[in-house]
């Protein structure tokens, strides 16, 4: 069978059945591409996974593009990439159109409002998850608190803060690099 078609199919399947975030695709990709079809060694898949996380953009898509390109060049990259995003696009489009038809009154409003509270709770958990792994020294803690306060008091926008934080990261890393 054509390699592009196989890549597309594997990513389409992985994208359809994995919830909350793209990284959940990984076990399916490993089973289908590395074990069953042997199109890619497992350590290369994990190397690309680590690498994808250092770049901006949609990590799962970057990973799919790396894998696709490695297996079958440019056309492989497009096939894997398309497979990775198509389920999310189609399902989310259908869900959004459905959502636009939900009445915003009476019991529906009460239900939606409660779901929004759950949504806020998800973000508290997400912030805790990010903080737990990334706030290990005083500088990171200062950056995090600075971003929190600057956003809450409307001082600087999120894009500005992210650029500033990147610059701070660069400056603070420089001397350490020269020492080593």
């Amino acid at each position: 069978m054509n390699k592009d078609w196989q890549l597309f199919k594997v990513y389409l399947m992985a994208g359809t059945f994995t919830f909350s975030g793209g990284m959940a695709m990984l076990p399916v990709i490993e089973r289908e591409l590395c074990q069953k079809r042997q199109l890619l060694p497992r350590d290369e898949l994990y190397e690309y996974t680590t690498l994808s996380q250092t770049f901006p953009g949609v990590i799962a898509l970057t990973n799919a593009c790396f894998v696709g390109e490695k297996v079958n060049g440019k056309s492989g990259m497009l096939a894997a990439g398309l497979g990775a995003i198509l389920p999310a696009f189609v399902l989310m489009l259908a869900a959004t159109i459905g959502y636009q038809h939900v009445p915003q009154s009476g019991v529906f409003l009460s239900i939606m409002s409660a779901i929004r509270a759950a949504s806020a709770a998800f973000l508290f958990s997400a912030a805790y998850g990010l903080a737990r792994y990334n706030l290990k020294d005083p500088l990171s803690l200062a950056i995090a608190v600075g971003c929190l306060l600057a956003t809450l008091f409307n001082l600087l926008s999120a894009p500005t803060l992210i650029i500033l934080a990147g610059v701070i990261g660069l400056i603070s890393a420089r001397p350490r690099k020269e020492q080593s």
Binding site: L123, A131, N134, L135, A165, G169
Partner: peptide, 24 residues
């Protein structure tokens, strides 16, 4: 790249917390 990430990751923790507080 990894130096930039070391700055941005803690920033995103603070930024997500800010969105969580706003939604709450």
């Amino acid at each position: 790249l990894s130096a930039i990430l070391r700055g941005i990751k803690p920033a995103s923790a603070g930024l997500v917390l800010a969105v969580a507080v706003t939604l709450a």
